[in-house]
Design a binder for these strands. Structure first.
Lengths: 237, 237
DNA sequence: CCACTAAATGAATGGTATTCATTTACGAGA
DNA sequence: TCTCGTAAATGAATACCATTCATTTAGTGG
């Protein structure tokens, strides 16, 4: 049985560009071997779309292949494992993090904007956090580009060079942990039947609830982020 | 075929105690129905042992059952899912976190000791972090007990009650993120062929490496933790 | 002594990522 | 124009996985 007609859509988003097609003939569009249905950009885009619609539980190699009108095994001509797909998605998301304030605004404001943006992007993609947190930067060019911009911002803000990486890591650790909080259920701190056995904690939870914040995770994030900004900012020479 | 003889070992560690046996007869040991091979404490202990030996990839319901000399389906008489097993393990680990300094040492020292201990315990169990981070405390009594002790420590250190939970959440977020760092490969920041394209970042990485710290993750953790302690400490009335 | 019930079995189910022998079709070189 | 090499597809097979369920076992309370 012949292969089905090429899948429509999935226009490249630009980032994981395939090596240039070697065709000398000008009639062929560059960037994708003419007979090929799949490439990394298409896989990335399809994976993101699938995650958006079905969540990370719905992201299976079978479902991904189906959304591309292709057999599951075909994916393995372009990625070596499902982990590879997650890595592609992660690197795509890294490009969405807002680093524009570095070099344009004071250090404190730039860090603040970056950190909120970083948290917001990955709070929608918490299953990627274990991936990013231990990901060698070589495998993720867009992520590396983000680090470069942030590092330059720290250097220009008169950070001692040997403290820059540790400071970024500390901020990032806080951001990753905080991304989980955003997705936690509202009643996560309800002690239920144990309430009277835990008076200090229950009192503190009730006292926070009485404040009526619409997004409690934002309060904790702001509190911690401001503490980190002023604490780390003191390292500047 | 009759059931194999009861598995040896797996003495209860105390925490996930089975409801008291209803036997009026004093001859029976309390806590475990006499004919039962399994209970939650035994499952927890076996799971921990399995994780220690084979890692989280080796923690399967089949392997867990085998280590208890039992059929996989037998586990489902005591836990409702594999997630339930993870929850039992998580709650057991929470009891290992050192909260002893609260009420015995100044707030700063107590927080410092608690945070290092918390990070160290869960850096060996990072697959549990997504579980804890969104876990309703009702389902984890030991975890709840930890929160109670910590909350009391904050209250006694003159924290405004409505800021206690947010402060703990901020610290916890940082701790969870930092637990991942401990397990990251040493060359995670090696930019490889992209090194000359990322001069600020590469310079910062080299400058840190030149310091020759044996555990770079500890430097970042200390930096962030001290910033949080002094920033959050300023909230005290 | 009987009946009830908690707790075990083992087979079956539906899902997963991944591998591999085979086929297809494009494009380059003779 | 023909042929050959190769990149990229297929689909069947593999080895797991968690979970369900009808059935059996064996103790306990009445």
């Amino acid at each position: 049985m012949p292969a089905p007609p090429a899948a429509p859509g999935h226009t490249s988003l630009g980032d994981p560009a395939e090596p240039e097609a070697k065709t000398e003939n000008g009639r062929r569009r560059a960037g994708r071997p003419v007979g090929a249905v799949l490439d990394k950009a298409g896989i990335t885009a399809a994976a993101l779309q699938l995650i958006e619609k079905k969540g990370y539980d719905g992201l299976t190699m079978a479902a991904l292949a189906r959304s591309l009108n292709v057999a599951p095994s075909a994916l393995y001509n372009h990625v070596s494992s499902k982990g590879d797909v997650l890595l592609l998605v992660e690197d795509h998301l890294a490009a969405l993090v807002d680093v524009s304030a570095f070099g344009a605004e004071p250090w404190e404001d730039a860090v603040r904007k970056w950190a909120w943006s970083y948290r917001d992007v990955f709070s929608q993609h918490t299953p990627l956090i274990p991936v990013i947190a231990v990901l060698p930067v070589t495998d993720a060019p867009q992520t590396l580009a983000m680090y470069e911009t942030v590092s330059a911002g720290f250097r220009d803000a008169d950070f001692p060079e040997e403290r820059i990486v540790s400071s970024i890591v500390a901020l990032e650790s806080f951001i990753f942990g905080s991304a989980y909080d955003v997705t936690a259920p509202a009643d996560i701190f309800d002690a239920g039947s144990m309430a009277e056995a835990t008076p200090s904690f229950t009192g503190a939870v009730r006292s926070l609830a009485a404040q009526g914040h619409e997004r409690p995770a934002d309060v904790a994030f702001s509190l911690g982020l401001e503490a980190l900004i002023s604490g780390l900012g003191a390292l500047r020479q």
